[in-house]
């Protein structure tokens, strides 16, 4: 990691950690939601940006984790919170594994996208039908938990303490995903994205790696949902709606799907635009739409691609000046490994 990236991450962590001290509760709440969405987007982009699979039903995993955690906190008060988080991850992984087992063999590309979309809609319809899960109204008044660490007991019932827990958990999940993406596994996945046929030719078991990535991604998405439930204190069938599935896609593409941190940048931008335009009915959609459009039209590789282009231009001003660099940056996706 370059020093400048390290500095950027450290600065972001300091700002985020000190947030409850200087910002009001409303802002803290929104930033907490953004943290959850950022992890969710990272989990999606492990599939899209690193393995080349577009899941259009990722919100299903989010909902699985969210409902498991919400129901656990409400009905099974004896179960420790960390076990619920682990359970959400395990259930998400299991679901993803079973779905992937069938879906990845039978479909790819756009068919895989629509297949996952239809499956997530099935889940949403079933949740909205289940009385135990609150039908259309969802589970509300989800209590925030206390975590027993053996030596000490962390009481997370206040908004502030849960926010810090959320921050630590999100950072840990992001770190794990970063290790995976930058490690040998990530390299193999990128090979598959760039050319599955050639990867298979080199002896990579493409199907098995895809299944692994899908399982891991589902698990992380479920944990992000599980973190969300006690933060918002309500979870509704809308969390499994396909519109929610488009959220990580938009964040990833906006921030730059070829870069590991792109989805996080995208989520931050989305949250900021949403917050800035929250009082303007109708206008907020137009502003978000126009910003998206401008970014896509002017920087097809997302914000991270734009930053990288500036960086390379600064480093070698003579060679990269002019249109040549622009065309190259737009047509040849930079491998994510360079970030």
């Amino acid at each position: 990691m370059k020093p400048i990236h390290f500095l950027a991450i450290a600065a972001a962590l300091v700002v985020l950690a000190s947030l409850p001290v200087w910002a009001n509760q409303g802002v803290t709440f929104i930033v907490g939601l953004a943290l959850v969405e950022a992890v969710f987007a990272l989990s999606w982009n492990l599939l899209f940006g690193f393995t080349g699979m577009a899941s259009f039903g990722h919100a299903a995993f989010f909902a699985i984790g969210g409902y498991l955690c919400g129901a656990g906190l409400r009905y099974a008060t004896g179960v420790p919170f960390l076990a619920l988080l682990g359970g959400a991850g395990a259930l998400g992984a299991l679901t993803a594994f079973l779905v992937g087992l069938v879906a990845l063999r039978r479909s790819s590309g756009i068919h895989f996208a629509i297949l996952t979309l239809a499956l997530s809609e099935v889940l949403r319809v079933l949740i909205a039908y289940s009385t135990a899960l609150g039908r259309e109204d969802g589970l509300s008044a989800i209590p925030r938990p206390a975590v027993n660490l053996g030596v000490a007991r962390l009481d997370l019932t206040s908004g502030q303490s849960y926010y810090w827990f959320l921050l630590v958990a999100s950072a840990l999940l992001a770190w794990v995903l970063w290790l995976v993406a930058k490690g040998p596994l990530g390299r193999v996945l990128q090979t598959i994205r760039q050319d599955p046929e050639r990867a298979a030719f080199m002896g990579v078991d493409v199907w098995r790696y895809r299944l692994g990535a899908f399982t891991l991604s589902g698990a992380v998405a479920a944990v992000s949902g599980a973190l969300y439930a006690p933060w918002a204190q309500i979870i509704t069938p809308d969390s499994a709606h396909w519109i929610h599935s488009t959220q990580p896609m938009l964040a990833s593409l906006l921030g730059g799907a070829q870069s590991f941190w792109g989805p996080v940048i995208g989520t931050i931008l989305f949250t900021a635009i949403n917050y800035a335009t929250r009082t303007l009915i109708g206008l907020s959609e137009i502003v978000i739409g126009v910003v998206l459009l401008v970014i896509v039209l002017s920087a097809p590789s997302g914000v991270m691609g734009l930053l990288r282009r500036f960086e390379s231009r600064r480093n070698r001003p003579a060679a990269a000046a002019g249109g040549g660099a622009r065309v190259r940056a737009a047509t040849v996706p930079t491998p994510a490994g360079e970030a």
């Binding site: 896609m249 938009l250 959609e285 998206l292 039209l297």
Partner: peptide
């Protein structure tokens, strides 16, 4: 993403 932006 562009058509989604147009949708919005």
């Amino acid at each position: 993403i562009a058509t989604f932006a147009v949708l919005l």
